[in-house]
Design a protein around this nucleic acid. Structure first.
Length: 463
RNA sequence: UCCCCUGUAGCUCAGCUGGCAGAGCAAGUGGCUGUUAACCACUGGGUCCCUGGUUCGAACCCGGGCGGGGGAGCCA
């Protein structure tokens, strides 16, 4: 008999049809008159309750004994309306066969709640829990929604490289990629000769696809990348990973206003899709992980994001100098506490902050007429702050060269990037969205290590 | 990298002033008229993170190390 998923089964009428379902046992409850197996196969949040009457329980007693929490089973029976509260459907089971046992003495997952910290230590089994099953389903839907959003607007998906021989991306410490035996070279007291290395020069894992994707933007108009990026920063926080997925759109002939509109539409689209297509999983997060999540997400899509310049944001902060550990002043980088204040106290929702002092932003951002600020825009959200960083890019060759020199960067490292300004330059804008930060935002989870299947962070590369 | 907290049963934790190792849940066994975080009873279960020290005596105090969490910085 064809296997039906639990999700498929819950779309059927309880007409007594005979079905077979396969999955993993979540809990088993036994009484004298009946045995209840809760079966989950990951297709949806909820389980299928398989009920064995006294006769069926007796006929299957051997297999039922082996069907403990975590065991994989195949159950056949008839689909009926449930006579008890708690579920609309259930399987009146006739037979069960255990495919793989999960001995209770050693199986780490129990039919009780576990801490997220404990589950992190068994990352290979945690997708079998409600929480991580829901995270995986939402993550899948969000990844698809990213492509749907951009493809629906005529953007081209560009695959930017993961290995780069340029250390000029300027977004943080990089992991080196080499085939040289560095330990042996060091013990012999010599310096590595990178002309002998695989690429003939030092190479690294990318920290951003932006510079590369700009080249395709200046040919195809509207483009985006969506792929893994790597940061070798020694940052130990609930908001940072060493390996994370980033979405970077880049649009030609677009200014910072267009960029803000795109970012806002993008976030609202993703939240809308989550609310519509992941309702069951989001209800779980709202109930068990982050009370108020659904309400705040609905609010996000129903009202425009607050937009303010950095200068105005600092003025807002200066009105409440006593509420901060770090006193805000014009020219300071916004601290976490400042970002939280702006989103939670001033705006009560997402805030787009623009036109930052050029000293605290990257070389490629377009300098404003005032000569002091750049057309940067950061989208800040309640709970954890920056979720998007972007800007209008400097399209003038001389201004860009000046910025590179002022910051002490080497012009020759950017020769091909500068060519984009030498030949057919255009205004253009783009931003980066950390996919895992989006996941934190949409699920209400609070640690970024819990929204990626196998987190990579300092001292953490198991599984 | 810095600051704070923390490490005791499979899990979550308690363990007072240094003096016999504890609870709840989970598991096992039995019971229970359809349960659903099932319920009731009983039973088994320990490298008190590692290491060095202080002490008659250390889970507890001190030094060092390792792991986990929260916050900060860097950022997405």
């Amino acid at each position: 008999m064809k296997r039906l998923t639990v999700k498929e089964i819950f779309a059927l009428e309880p007409d007594g049809r005979s079905i077979t379902v396969k999955g993993w046992i979540r809990t088993k409850r036994e009484t004298k008159a009946a045995v209840f197996l809760e079966l989950n196969d990951g297709s949806r949040m909820g389980n299928l309750q398989c009920v064995f009457g006294e006769a069926e329980a007796a006929a299957n007693s051997g297999e039922i004994a082996r069907a403990g929490t975590g065991a994989s089973v195949s159950v056949t029976g008839s689909l009926v309306a449930s006579p008890a509260a708690g579920q609309k459907l259930e399987l009146r089971a006739e037979s069960v066969s255990v495919i793989g046992e999960a001995p209770a003495e050693t199986y780490p997952l129990q039919k009780k709640a576990h801490s997220l910290e404990f589950l992190r230590e068994i990352a290979h089994l945690r997708p079998r829990t409600n929480t991580f099953g829901a995270v995986a389903r939402v993550r899948n839907r969000m990844a698809f929604a990213v492509h749907q959003f951009f493809q629906g607007r005529g953007f081209q998906y560009i695959h930017t490289p993961l290995i780069t021989a340029s250390d000029a991306e300027g977004a943080g410490a990089m992991f080196q990629v080499t085939t040289l035996d560095l330990a042996r070279i060091a013990s012999s007291g010599q310096e590595p000769d990178y002309s002998k290395d695989f690429f003939g020069k030092p190479a690294y894992l990318t920290v951003s696809g932006q510079l590369n994707v700009e080249t395709y933007c200046e040919a195809l108009g509207s483009v985006y990348t969506f792929g893994p990026t790597f940061r070798a920063e020694n940052s130990n926080t609930s908001r940072h990973l060493s390996e994370f997925w980033m979405i970077e759109p880049e649009v030609a002939f677009a200014d910072i206003g267009d960029n803000m509109d795109l970012a806002e539409d993008f976030l609202k689209h993703l939240v809308t899709v989550a609310l519509e297509d992941c309702a069951e999983d989001l209800e779980f997060f709202d109930k068990r992980i982050q009370p108020g999540l659904l309400e705040s997400l609905r609010k996000v899509i129903s009202s425009p994001f607050t937009r303010m310049s950095y200068t105005d944001a600092v003025k807002e902060l200066e009105k409440s100098p006593g509420s901060f550990e770090f006193k805000p002043y014009w020219g300071c980088d916004l601290q976490s506490e400042h970002e939280k204040f702006l989103t939670e106290k001033v705006a009560g929702g997402p805030v787009i902050v623009t036109d930052y002092p050029k000293e605290i932003k990257s070389f490629y951002m377009k300098v404003n007429e005032d000569g002091k600020t750049v057309r940067a825009m950061d989208v800040l959200v309640p709970r954890f702050g920056e979720i998007i960083g972007g800007s209008e890019r400097e399209e003038g060759l001389e201004v860009l060269l000046g910025r590179i020199r002022d910051l002490g960067l080497r012009e020759q490292d950017y020769w091909w990037y500068l060519d984009l300004r030498r030949y057919g330059t255009t205004p253009h804008s783009g931003f980066g969205l950390g996919f895992e930060r989006l996941m934190l935002y949409v699920t209400g989870m609070t640690n970024i290590r819990d929204v990626i299947p196998f987190p990579r962070a300092p001292k953490l590369a198991d599984f």
